[in-house]
Design a protein around this nucleic acid. Structure first.
Lengths: 191, 191, 191, 191
DNA sequence: TATGAATGAGTATTCATTCAT
DNA sequence: GATGAATGAATACTCATTCAT
């Protein structure tokens, strides 16, 4: 066998794409992504057949990373509030640690180059979590709007929280708490 | 008065840009926008010197329209909750009436072609409103996070609400109410 | 109206393509064709949407020119031999006058970028002529092989004649005669 | 003997090139040829330093195969007509048996990547045959045009015959006969 | 020697912008 | 001012060739 297709290089390209797309949007040239990754222009295409494929893979990669972050240390035995608080903290924390990722994801979400299939697959990773939220909310004030709505609300509130943390990193803890409290009041079954 | 005719064209171009960018993102060709507006490719550039200028103007146009919608019929004498409820309803209602505008704005928000200056100017239109929210919140649970945070939270929660309405137009009223109730619980000074 | 799409430019591009493709085959870069035509790279694509379209149009253009050459001065009242001799002379003469065209046509004929539709359309221009050949041959020794075969034979024999003339222009007359005599002996109904 | 194995691969590559180039022209990627040959992309270049070399070798290979086919069973003691008939039959027969080869040769003939040297070498293989034709024709009606012209005429008429057989395989025998008869009438010294 | 990943020059095509009409 | 053809830089992707394994 000749040089094996290196997983390192694949990850380097995805990481570069995360950065560059976070900065410039999905219109960023593949050449720039390749350079940032330290590979030749053509090499990018041995790992991703087309730019669209790269974009879709990156979307899944980011969503997957986010999910992993949220499930790590998940307090299965905690109260509803504790479990939700964990998810919130992990989500926001991931955004703080991956500022590029957060911005890249924001770009990809509104791009028409991400297929419905990819979106579905990306969301599937969170199905489990949504089920949890569903139970959380079953008896709460938003029971009629449905768990998808609550999940989306949580996502967008967390995104907003991330943005504020990105601008004022020192106040990270404060925004994280304030954001969660707001969310919890909004959905608290005991509210 | 050559001016009147010109203004028509300017608005036609902006309207076309709203549609096209809502559908295809900021990468959409100016030629397509021109065609949709019913003018020649070159004409677009007599109204907007560059594509970036068009994009920035569109951003301001949309933000301005949104502001107008929110201030129309504003119940100056109402309670805090009533006034906030009005803003919420107007915001969400605007998104429902201007589906292209909502999507276009989502694209422009994440585009690096919108200058900081434009963003500032766009937000300025809401300064007045933020002041109102500030007062709303002054004694509420989010008083430490600041009015900007609460304003952003309101925006993102309303955006989420809009998206759900776009997918299930029949449930517009239900989502509008549920969304607002959630928001109000999150920020209610009396909560 | 702005600048009208100029027929001159269209012809310049086709003429350039004829030359360049005659020299380098269908793999020749469109950029080179554009430069040879004295227009910008992009301009080529305002006249021909794709390279394939240019290639197919060129094929039809060349076939059409060839047909016109053959029908000019056609001796409707001549004997079978005279009429056939006219066609032969015109065909070979066209090749001598359009050396680029001849070579370009040779390339296009073997290219898989020329569609079956284009080939059919190109041949249709010669249908009339084939009918004539059909009558010529009806009672000749090749009656069983069919007029298409005889027409193709005439074409390939004339092509060969052209090639020899291209290499030895001084002997043009001699090769033209020798070639025709050979062809006529091959198909002469009185032979 | 590592040689034997290598020779197999060399032939496999040439055979694959024959097919692929016959189908897609000289623009076909070397990668595709390699895959069709069942070897790695890089391996192709241990047998042929460049694509041009492969193309030129293939040209010679095809020409050589054609010559061998024509000389096999050559009736040295036959009449002029019999000998010429044998050549014709062998040529056309080769084309029928090697449809890829025929098409590949057609592509290579018009390619500017085949050097003059290669062309000369390829023709040299037929020198002997041309000498024969020379004698055949010495007293015939085409004596002034020269044996090269007659040889070329024979080639192009046979090519045309092949094409018709390719389209109507059932009529192979008929076309072969008709083609030869036409050619013979064209050159028959006794005509 | 065989492999196939890596390379980067090369290619068709797009598109913001200019400018002749 | 309006038009749309003209421009050429920019872009995604290809492919002959090299080279580490």
């Amino acid at each position: 066998m000749a040089r094996a297709k290196s997983e390192d290089k694949r990850r380097a390209i995805l990481a570069a794409a995360e950065e560059v797309i976070g900065e410039q949007g999905t219109g960023a040239p593949t050449a720039r992504i390749a350079r940032r990754a330290g590979v030749a222009e053509g090499t990018l295409f041995t790992y991703f057949a087309t730019k669209d494929e790269l974009l879709n893979q990156l979307y899944l990669e980011l969503k997957g990373g986010l999910r992993d972050a949220m499930m790590t240390g998940y307090p299965h035995a905690g109260t509803l509030r504790e479990r939700t608080r964990h998810l919130w903290g992990a989500y926001v924390g991931w955004g703080v640690v991956h500022p590029h990722g957060g911005r890249a994801l924001a770009q990809l979400k509104v791009s028409d180059r991400i297929t419905d299939e990819t979106r579905a697959e990306g969301s599937a990773a969170f199905a489990e979590m949504e089920a949890l939220i569903a139970r959380t909310v079953a008896d709460g004030p938003l029971r009629d709007a449905g768990p998808a709505f609550v999940g989306a609300l949580m996502g967008s509130m967390a995104d907003t929280t991330m943005e504020f943390i990105a601008r004022q990193p020192d106040a990270a803890r404060r925004f994280t708490e304030a954001g969660f409290d707001a969310f919890w009041r909004a959905v608290d079954p005991a509210g």
